[in-house]
Design a protein around this nucleic acid. Structure first.
Lengths: 212, 212, 212, 212
DNA sequence: CATGAATGAGGTTTCATTCAT
DNA sequence: GATGAATGAAACCTCATTCAT
């Protein structure tokens, strides 16, 4: 029997901070910055409200901390996407698919960004950390486009930034605006079937554009 | 009895309601539903706060009234777009251009929709009026796609709803998320040049997709 | 029977403001700025706490309003003191006596000033109103000193500002620091006898100085 | 055994207590009792907040400890003043000068006393220590007055307690109320010139009174 | 002797809404 | 139709103090 060491338990301080951060993310995602309530965050985290201020200063700073973690998470996920190992067509499909599923699996990302954009990115602007977290996707996409072009598969002159924003757009908007879209169209756009059709369309759209 | 009749003017009541509605739209667009303040709406409208409750009941109903007007406005603008009179390629370009410029000229539309989507479209669901205001664009686009297909210009099997959502997506997301995008990319994406490039890209994207 | 008009009742708004101001003065005088509680002010005034903010904005502005009223009160009392109609010796006695009794009858004046001085007169500096309320006493005293000198009663070269400050000093300090003085000296310095002796001493002190 | 002994140094415990006391004095002097923050005292002292409670019990007791030290300091300074070795006129001048400079050099003394007086000397009353620290100045002054009277220099019947309080008054008030006085008079009463003029006036005032 | 973590009570302020005229 | 006055609930945040090690 191996010498079992005790499970490396988090120090309470770290644990408390993580619990708060997680609760705050849920609350901010559900209600937006203005609608979020510090009291509810404390309830969700099952800690004393005072502790939130002890660790995070105030509501604004807490929101920023949540944003920073959110961006750190997506950047980490993006890093794991190795488009350079795929053939160009497959890479485009994968990029769309990854983006789509990331947003689908992380509705809090969308909600937080909407709230932050409503406030003119005022929190984000204060964070050097986030601004230094460059997404690797644009560079990856540029490389893919270049390879596709050399293979005479892709058209010339595609701006990778514009394309990346467009891919993000079609994934993000469908999910972000799903409640109003579903209401206006009078049908549920979040059924598994609808989601599958959407993903299919987006791949077609992007490939239809890049392919010669 | 003199011939002069008073210039046809709005009754005070109607005028007050319009003024309130306009002020509320600005406030809700700037701060979102939760961040908006009834007091500030009264200040913006330069009327007594009590009047807001007299005419609109409460904050929720006021928000709904603003939403209804916002949808009525965009539906009216859409009605004026006669894609059926254009050749298919031009019609696609026009649809993208119209959508883009409408969002660009009506930032409150984006802000209000984001806020409403954060709240799961709860106000919208209560409004039969809005749900009856069907956008004519999907039907217009379907007709254009059919014409393009018949002229052997456009590919087969394009879902007009998906395409319409994609067009809306690329326009909406770029503007809606401009503050965070500009911050993350470290450059201003709202310069005239950037906006022109974006429009050009979006037209290329959509045409690249629909054209055979 | 004369046409009786209803007693000119204050409008509720004015009445509320006065009630709040009066309660705030008591609270600030008793506890100082930092120790004062807005809740207690509301209780004292028997009004809703919210009303305090409705009329006065915040705690700082309320404190300033109290200070302004306090200065207005003392300036009004000073105006009623006509030293120019008294013979110089009597005028000095009256000035000491007036100052003494004003402080004795208005302990809140002393308490408020102590609190304000602790905070480097930060509220006062913001008030143009108070800075425009010049005390007439220095000018009155200058006139008295000049008359006394012409009558060959008073010595030459007395600075009226210094003397005025000294008169204020001896009156103010004895009352302001009475609790610690009484404790340190081990006897009650606020008995009627002690107060009378103090007033007598101060008159002697000032006359002993000004008389040739 | 080597001859070198460690430099005599304070034990950590004593050192911590002194550091805390000093930090507390600064904090209480700057903000008064109610405005002072235990957290800030810990920051100023660069020690853990818990230590304050370990050594001093609570905020009230800490304030009392500060007061006791403050009184001990001034009593020690007073002891060093040997008025009995001076001729009576010079002794009066010296007493005024000493009082003035002590207050000028120890603004915390004034601030602490103002705060304590606001609270009706409630801390002071609990301290037997302070009440046993009698000021030697009254006795010294009595002796000087008696000597002056015997030399036929000073007038008869001067109460040394009243005079001592008056001397303290004129020094204390000018400094304590300097912020409001400067604001109300519209000029800086703390310039070197203003301070020198004040001291000169106070000496003249006291000598003008005591001299026959 | 020393410390970071934690807390209940209460602080100021804000909010949507209603009252009374 | 219109208004200033008023309110209860709840928001964010701070405080002196204690816990657990």
């Amino acid at each position: 029997m191996p010498a079992t060491s005790p499970a490396p338990r988090l120090r309470d301080a770290d644990k408390s901070q993580l619990v708060i951060l997680s609760a705050a993310m849920d609350e901010f995602a559900q209600y937006g910055y203005a609608g979020a309530r510090v009291d509810r965050i404390a309830e969700r985290a099952e800690i004393n409200k005072r502790l939130i201020y002890y660790y995070f200063g105030n509501k604004d700073d807490l929101f920023l901390a949540v944003l920073e973690r959110t961006y750190a998470d997506i950047r980490a996920a993006e890093q794991a996407l190795h488009l350079d190992e795929m053939d160009p067509v497959e890479a485009i499909r994968q990029l769309v698919s990854f983006t789509w599923h990331y947003y689908l699996d992380h509705p809090e990302f969308i909600a937080l960004l909407n709230s932050e954009n409503l406030h003119q990115a005022e929190h984000l602007k204060q964070s050097d950390r986030i601004q230094e977290m460059n997404s690797p996707l644009v560079a990856m996409l540029a490389e893919v486009l270049e390879r596709g072009r050399k293979q005479d598969l892709f058209r010339d002159g595609i701006d990778p930034i514009q394309l990346y924003i467009s891919i993000a757009s079609v994934c993000y908007f469908y999910l972000s605006n799903n409640p109003t879209l579903s209401t206006v169209f009078g049908r549920d756009l979040r059924t598994p079937k609808a989601l599958a059709q959407r993903l299919s369309h987006m791949k077609d759209l992007m490939l239809g554009y890049v392919l010669k």
